[in-house]
């Protein structure tokens, strides 16, 4: 028996919006520690890892570990039927073939339940090694989204370079080229507006912009984003989910033959 009550139901709606275009089907894993998902996009270039910790739920009951295969397009259709202020409860029976999403309006005067069929998904769970990153950049998520969107009108790939001067995003295409440099700044008024660069050594990596643009659909989840990079390793693009967890996107770099 599984019963997870999330008061801020809009978070789950936003999570689905953030990943449904990248991943079609995925297993949601439920354990004592939380509600999680790990899935790759269909071309196996990117991986998304979601964690909603159990202590972030108002009520969290998970009698035994459960993996529920869901079509994210269908799940998103159902969650779209929840109001933004609704409390969402996810319910499932052990060994059942469906999951129920219950939506309660804040004043409790409207209660809906939507039952969705589960599916069997053969997914490979990948082990993500602990890594010391050469550079970690924390910046406003809207700024990162703006840069990815702007540069994708010029080129298909972006070179992200971190040096002591700042973080540089560069692209080029048929019509020309573009560079955007963000320097470290300290905002006294608002930590969310800060760009903070922690660098052990300079790093420069090339990525396909269309994946980064897809990741920025998570911008509504957090005011800041963190980019963690090491030479010739996937970048981690992380959005914290207020008080409850995170969504991390891993993207394989483009590497010289």
């Amino acid at each position: 028996m599984l019963e997870l009550r999330l008061v801020q139901g809009s978070l789950l709606k936003k999570v689905l919006d953030a990943i449904k275009d990248l991943v079609t089907d995925a297993n949601f894993d439920c354990s004592e520690s939380g509600f999680s998902l790990q899935a790759m996009d269909s071309s196996h270039v990117a991986l998304v890892a979601l964690l909603l910790r159990s202590d972030g739920f108002e009520h969290y009951r998970c009698d035994r570990n459960l993996s529920m295969g869901m079509n994210l397009t269908n799940m998103s259709k159902m969650l779209k039927c929840a109001g933004n202020d609704d409390i969402i409860t996810i319910k499932a029976d052990d060994g059942g073939d469906s999951v129920t999403f219950m939506f309660e309006s804040p004043s409790q005067d409207k209660v809906s339940d939507f039952e969705m069929k589960l599916m069997d998904i053969d997914s490979e769970h990948l082990g993500i090694p602990e890594t010391e990153y050469h550079a970690i950049v924390k910046m406003p998520s809207a700024e990162f989204a703006r840069i990815c969107r702007d540069l994708s009108t010029i080129g298909d790939t972006v070179v992200i370079s971190v040096s002591k001067d700042g973080v540089k995003f560069s692209t080029s295409g048929d019509i020309g080229s573009a560079n955007v440099v963000c320097r470290q700044n300290n905002s006294v008024d608002n930590k969310d507006n800060e760009t903070v660069i922690e660098m052990n050594e300079p790093v420069s990596l090339t990525f396909a912009l269309r994946y980064l643009n897809s990741f920025t659909k998570a911008t509504t989840l957090s005011n800041t984003v963190t980019l963690s990079m090491s030479k010739e390793l996937p970048v981690v693009v992380e959005y914290k989910i207020a008080e409850i967890g995170h969504i991390r996107f891993y993207l394989a770099p483009k590497i010289e033959d």
């Binding site: 490979e124 990948l126 082990g127 993500i128 790939t157 483009k254 590497i255 033959d257």
Partner: peptide, 14 residues
């Protein structure tokens, strides 16, 4: 030119 690698070449199956 640069080639797109697979994420599976970095993270191993569990």
């Amino acid at each position: 030119g640069k080639q797109q690698g697979s994420i599976m070449s970095f993270f191993k199956k569990q």
